[in-house]
Amino acid sequence: MTVTQTDTKSDVDAPAPVAKEHLRRLLATGERPAAPSAFASARAFAWRSMLKIKHVPEQLGDILVFPIIMLLMFTYLFGGAIAGGTGEYLQFLLPGIMVMSIVMTTIYTGMSVNIDINKGVSDRFRTLPIWRAAPMVGYLLADMFRYAAAGAIMFGTGLVMGYRPEGGAVGVLLGVGLLLVFCFAFSWVWTWLGLITRSEKTVMSISMSILFPMTFLSNVMVDPSTMPGWLQPVVKNTPISQLVDGVRGLFDGTVDSVSVLTTLIWSGGFVAVFGFLTIRAYNRK
C-alpha cells in the first residue's frame, strides 16, 4: 500500500512555522490593559498617519508644493493688474492665499477617510473598544502637522519674495493658529462626506465644487468693496472671508476681534454639526 502525499511547492520566502508553545503562553497571559483614553487612542491614530507619511512621502509633496505654486502664480500674475505692483499685492495676498491653499488641502482628509473605510483595516478599528471618533481625530491631528508645515513653507517663500508682517512673530503665530483651528473644524465636513460617499473620486469632485466657489468668492484675492453691491454682503460674510480677515489682521497687526470671534464660532459650529454627522455615519456604516 502506498501513502500518497500531495507535494506542494514551498514558498521561497516561506515564514518560519508557528511556535505553538510560545503562542499558548501568549494566549494564557490573560493580560487586559485598561482601555486607552480618548486622547491616547487619537494620538495612536495620529502616529499611524505620520508613519504613512514616512512610508509614502509622495503624499506630502502635493501638500507642500501646491501652496508655493499658488503663491508665486497669483502674486506675479495678478499683482500688476490688481494692486499696481507685486510687492504691494504680496502684502495683501499672502495671508489670504495661505488660507485658501491650506483650506483646499483639507479635502485630502475626506479622501483618506473614504479610502480607509473601504478597506478591511477599518473593520478592525471599528471592533476595538475605543473612542469612536479616535480614527478621525487622529487623522486631523496629523493633518495639523501638514498644515503647519505648509504654512511655514509659504511664509518662508513669502519672506524671500519680500513679504513683511507688521504683526510680528506673535501675530503670525496667532494667525496660523487661527487657521489651524478653522481647518481642524472645517475638516469634519469632509470626514462626513468621506463616510457617506462611494469612492474617493466622489469625495474629490463634491468637495472641489464646494471649495472652489467658496474660496474664490471671498476676500482672498481682491478687496470685496470692488465687487458689485449685491455681491458684497454675501462675500464678506462667508466663513472663509471671516477667517481671512482674522488671519490678515493678525499678520498685519491690525487685528479685528469680530472676525476672529466669528471664525471661532463658525469653527465650533462645524465641529458640532459635522462631528455629530460623522460619528453617526461611522456608527451606521
Partner: peptide, 18 residues
C-alpha cells in the same frame, strides 16, 4: 494597514488596546 510594516501594525493595535 498595507502601508505599515507588520511590526507597526501590531504596535498600533496594541496601543489601541491600551
Amino acid at each position: 494597514d498595507e502601508d505599515l510594516t507588520g511590526a507597526e501594525n501590531l504596535v498600533l493595535l496594541s496601543r489601541l488596546y491600551g
